[in-house]
Design a protein around this nucleic acid. Sequence first.
DNA 1: TCGAATTTGTGCGTATGTATC
DNA 2: GGATACATACGCACAAATTCG
Lengths: 248, 248
Amino acid sequence: MPTPPAYLTIAADLRAAILSGELPAGAKLPSESGLMRQYEVSRTVAKWAIAVLKGEGIVEGRAGSGVYVRNTTRLVRHAQARDLRAEQGPTSPFARDAARAGQQGTWEHESRRDQADERIAARLGVGPGAPVMRTAYRFLSDGEPIQLSTSYEPLALTEGTPVEWPEEGAAVGVVARMDTIGVRVDEVVERVSLRAATAEEVDALSLPTRSFVHSIERTYTAAGKPVETADIALPGGRYDLVYRIPID
Amino acid sequence: MPTPPAYLTIAADLRAAILSGELPAGAKLPSESGLMRQYEVSRTVAKWAIAVLKGEGIVEGRAGSGVYVRNTTRLVRHAQARDLRAEQGPTSPFARDAARAGQQGTWEHESRRDQADERIAARLGVGPGAPVMRTAYRFLSDGEPIQLSTSYEPLALTEGTPVEWPEEGAAVGVVARMDTIGVRVDEVVERVSLRAATAEEVDALSLPTRSFVHSIERTYTAAGKPVETADIALPGGRYDLVYRIPID
DNA sequence: TCGAATTTGTGCGTATGTATC
DNA sequence: GGATACATACGCACAAATTCG
């Protein structure tokens, strides 16, 4: 029975202390020097132990200060048929999720006309270069950036209608907006994957470098025809994604 | 404009080579010695560069041999209303997903009576210690382990019926099995989160140490009453999760 | 079969820069 | 300004696994 390497033992000890609540969110871990004394190891080993926990996303180093336990409270993102249709109410699904967690959900957005690249064109079922309305969102929960999203709608569908600019009408949410122009959205497909955060996402979401995001490709369709598609990025490990699917 | 540290530059170069296909799955990365010569850096820097890519799950080190690009072909797991009801067919959803990817899906299972712990009891809406049927699955795609799952069904519901032992009847899948005893499943809820793989998962799924998994808590309900709940683990970054939700 | 070379894994010691307190 | 702490980096050493002649 081989003993695990020292740096993994130390990482396991610290992880256990964090998960047990002994080191709560925001708490400072022992310094490298402290770990060196406590475990009688070199700085290299202390550093690798911390690197393991950083890789797991549960601690964050701040140069000159220390290594701190990251906030581990998980936000919940709901996707369910009833919610989607009920969006004719005054609040967005995001704001509702935040409110459920006792937090205030706000967002910034920026819309502009654009041309569909190949990837978006394929998802919208239009030709490459087709005109689309592109809207970039940044969602904040209690002021802290927590979700990015870029949505695309074919202008062939919305141009000249009251919902051409997504955030300017009274209706909130894709389903409700499309309802107002007589397009009845009847299905949403989400494809969830996991990948390393891009530099832009690290910046926009205040993530530690080299962290993960849930990447969601979402497409709304009406009678089989795509009417909106979006790329959504959520900090990995900070979000639970809940899908409620009716059967028959 | 500060230049990025050397180890991140090297990691970025290698990552670009992998993503561009210049280094395909299975290809061997330059050895540490090679990187030292090529970039004129110390072994420490070469090692940290590789560690970054390992942390991203895109390469895997083998002692004595080298560092290799991991298989990045993504499997797709579908969860959608039509599929779920159609399970009365002879194949399971898992086998169908595998077939869609041109692979052969098989599985091992082991069922036993058990008592619900607090977590499972809460999810099933029964008292702690209530008798349940516990079934552990290991799914393989072309012989390679690719998914773990442990399901729990309240014996109060199934005891003495033909579907008491999940894998012994003719019907495949929770919805179809419950149909045969007159329980009409009408909803499934999945909660997707991301976490570090446990040692058992690393072992059972042949994962590199310190990798991530998608963790799914799935619960089927009939008229609001839970009839099955399962913990599912999928290798992070190897799976896309597709959810198809009808709206109204 | 054996042994040498290579490669990664683990670990030690040290040094410099820079951010924080 | 001084002490502390992390980030980056160099050089070295040995073990274990693999590869290959």
